[in-house]
């Protein structure tokens, strides 16, 4: 690939990073997480995001014959772009400056850049001309479905996960509310995946059992990402299990949209 092609690819990556994570760059709870999260948590978040990037680049971002070295190379390039974008954007909106202690600057940039990185990866792979995307559409296995569902869920739900509204909704939601939320989440996924001719779904073959398996996997991915994001943004510690479960179900509504519609759009 020539330098001009690479520059265009990076341009798409930067646009994708901004497009998918702009709400987070403007969210104060995310800035606060940058300096309230422990170094252990930040390190775990870096590791988790890197794994998601590797998974996404393996299953959608690159051609099927890409080697592990290629995938690693691509993921590290995504991190470099995301870190630069997050740093410059936070500087632009004056949420970091050089009078701040290193720990505060580093924390804010780490939190934002990890979310931007998924957007960069998706932007690089999906925002180009249609002909560049065809190679990644072949053969959707269960692992590919899980990885793309996790990435889609993270991309869509991360914009609301840090907000206090999730906690407030969860606090006033009784068991009946939560049950309806679960059913609506799964119902929306079913509508997107099987009954609306949504982009990328094609014609589903496999009967109702396979349909249920797809829905369960999709919703489990949404729940898993919701719980991870809630933990990272400090919404888990200090609360009882019932409130943690309620928050997870509340956040799983946007996450399940990401795991179904988002998966189809980014895959």
């Amino acid at each position: 690939m020539g330098i001009s092609e690479t520059a265009k690819e990076y341009g798409r990556g930067i646009v994708g990073g901004l497009l998918f994570s702009l709400p987070l760059l403007y969210t104060m709870e995310v800035w606060w997480t940058g300096f309230t999260a422990s170094p252990e948590k930040l390190l775990a978040f870096v590791g988790f995001t890197f794994l998601l990037l590797l998974g996404y680049n393996k299953h959608s971002g690159m051609r099927k014959d890409a080697t592990l070295k290629d995938i690693l190379h691509e993921s590290i390039e995504d991190i470099a772009l995301a870190f630069t974008v997050a740093f410059l954007f936070l500087l632009l909106i004056n949420k970091i400056n050089f009078n701040m202690p290193l720990r505060e600057i580093a924390g804010k940039v780490i939190v934002e850049s990890m979310i931007v990185a998924i957007g960069v990866s998706v932007g690089t792979a999906q925002l180009g001309q249609e002909k560049k995307r065809e190679a990644s559409k072949e053969g959707e296995g269960i692992l590919q479905m899980i990885v793309l569902s996790l990435c889609g869920a993270a991309l869509i739900s991360s914009s609301v996960a840090p907000t206090e509204e999730i906690l407030k909704i969860a606090m006033v939601s009784g068991p009946a509310h939560l049950m309806v939320m679960i059913l609506i989440s799964i119902g929306l996924s079913a509508l997107i995946l099987f009954f609306s001719d949504f982009k990328g779904t094609g014609s589903f073959e496999g009967g109702s059992f396979k349909m249920i398996v797809h829905l369960i996997i999709s919703y489990m991915c949404a729940l898993a990402i919701s719980l991870v994001l809630l933990w990272f943004f400090g919404r888990v510690s200090g609360h009882g299990w019932s409130l943690i479960i309620a928050q997870t179900i509340v956040l799983a509504i946007p996450a399940s949209l990401g795991a179904s519609a988002g998966r189809m759009l980014i895959g």
Binding site: M1, G2, I3, T6, A7, Y10, P39, E40, L42, L43, V46, F50, R63, D65, A66, T67, K69, D70, H73, I76, E77, D78, I79, A80, L81, F83, A106, I110
Partner: peptide, 29 residues
Amino acid sequence: MNNQKNYLERTTFFVGLLILAILIGYLSI
């Protein structure tokens, strides 16, 4: 597939690697 990386890709890769190493090192410390 052409695996040859150009100058810009190699530079970005090494910058990314450096950023990751600094982040992991800094957080570990």
